Amino acid sequence: MEFKDYYQILGVAPDADNKAIKKAYQALAKKYHPDLNQGDKASEEKFKEINEAYQAISDPDKRQKYDDLRANYQQWQSRGGRGDSFDWSAWQESPGSSRYTRTMTPEEFAEMFGGQGFEGNRSTGGFSDFFSTIFGMGAGMGGHHGFDDSDDYYADISHRQHVGRNIEGEIAITLEEAYHGTKRLIEVGGRRIEATVPRGIKNNNKIKLSGQGQAGPRGGKGDLLLTVSILPHTQYTRDGDDLTGNLEIDFYTAVLGGEARVRTLGGEVSIKIPPYTQSGRSFRLKGKGMPVLNKKDSFGDFYAKATIVLPKDLSEKETAALQQLAQERVKR
């Protein structure tokens, strides 16, 4: 069995805090998300690997166990250990183990999902043999396990037993999807469930699908609880319901004034630029930010931050004129 360095996979230091781990995960998840790399099997596998690493070291209990294993594995390597001779038995999950969450058998795992399991060879939700061996099938009753829909969705689910089990998971969406609203199709126990993500939803907000969880021993059903993770955007930053984006202004418009256009998530908007606009100045566009969750026709603001772009192809006449202006300014 191959050892996996989850810190290396996420590109974080072994002593990284949870905030740094989540930030690294979100950046990589955005880059390799299947929705953004449709048909790219390599990206899909990379996304699963990133997700597995995040599940292992974002949970305190799993991380402690993984860190212990990693330290022992590195010591074994430093003593000349090679190949498959490492003894995994001290770390492998087994029924009755009191040190860590016990391993679930494939039969138990399938039973948890109404005897259906998942399609094809995806019964472990895309997790590697290493992860399943160390943390158990589906990471056990108290941790996280993954599942995916072959076309629409990949998420990580943890189960807790109530009167009917709740199913908890995380879905990743783009900022555009948060602006317009979107849907996700999820398959659990042979059931396809459509989750509606409302426009204006914020990062780490939860969506509750009542009665879509696991059935309890008395026939009641738990809920499906989805935590929404919004992927970082390359052009905009979000603060509550407000957005900030870059506004490129050419040199002449910055000096003389004029108009410039900025692209918001709701479309392009024209802005009046006053003379002598400095780089870094922000222009507030009221009501052009994110939709306010559960408030119809209510929006945050958009802040367009000016960046002055110098011309690259000045003519000799333009260059001479600027040189003359510069000399005259020095004489003042």
Rank of each mutant, 00 (worst) to 15 (best):
F47L: 02
A42T: 11
A27I: 08
H33W: 05
F47T: 00
A24F: 05
L28A: 09
A16W: 12
V12D: 12
A27V: 07
A24L: 04
I9C: 11
Y25W: 15
K23S: 15
I9H: 12
K22G: 08
K48A: 13
D15K: 07
Q38C: 02
K4C: 04
L10S: 01
K22H: 13
I21A: 11
D40F: 08
K30P: 03
A42C: 02
L36Y: 04
D17K: 06
Y6N: 06
N18A: 14
K31S: 00
H33I: 01
K48S: 10
F47A: 09
P14F: 11
G11R: 02
A16L: 12
Q26P: 03
K23W: 06
P14D: 14
A29N: 11
I9L: 14
K31V: 00
N37P: 00
K46V: 10
A16V: 11
D17H: 08
K19H: 14
K23G: 09
Y6P: 01
A24H: 08
P34K: 01
K19F: 14
L28R: 05
L28I: 04
K31G: 00
P34H: 03
A13T: 08
K31P: 00
Q26F: 14
P14K: 12
E45G: 02
N18F: 15
A24C: 06
K48F: 13
K22R: 14
K19C: 11
K31T: 06
Q38A: 11
V12E: 12
F3S: 05
E45Q: 11
D15E: 14
K4N: 07
S43K: 13
V12H: 06
D40S: 12
D35H: 09
Q26N: 15
Q8M: 05
L10R: 00
I21Y: 09
Q38N: 10
G39P: 01
Y7I: 04
A42V: 08
Q26C: 13
V12K: 02
L36Q: 07
A13L: 07
A20W: 11
L28Q: 14
D17C: 05
K23R: 12
D17I: 03
P14I: 10
G39H: 03
K22P: 04
D40W: 08
K22C: 07
Y6D: 07
Q8N: 10
D17S: 06
Y32D: 09
K22L: 14
Y7T: 05
L28V: 01
F3V: 06
D5P: 03
Q26I: 04
S43R: 05
K4F: 09
D5K: 06
L36I: 00
F3M: 08
K30Y: 10
A13N: 11
A16H: 10
A42R: 04
F3G: 05
P14V: 13
P34C: 03
Q26V: 03
D15S: 12
L36K: 01
A42H: 04
G11F: 05
K23H: 13
A20G: 13
F3R: 04
Y32S: 07
G11D: 09
Q38L: 09
A27E: 12
D5V: 06
A20K: 15
D40P: 03
I9Q: 13
D15A: 11
A29R: 09
D15T: 13
A20P: 13
Q26W: 13
Y25M: 15
Q8C: 01
V12M: 06
V12S: 07
G39I: 02
F47D: 02
N18W: 14
Y6H: 10
S43I: 02
K23V: 07
K46C: 07
E44T: 07
D5M: 04
I9Y: 12
K46F: 07
A24D: 09
H33Y: 03
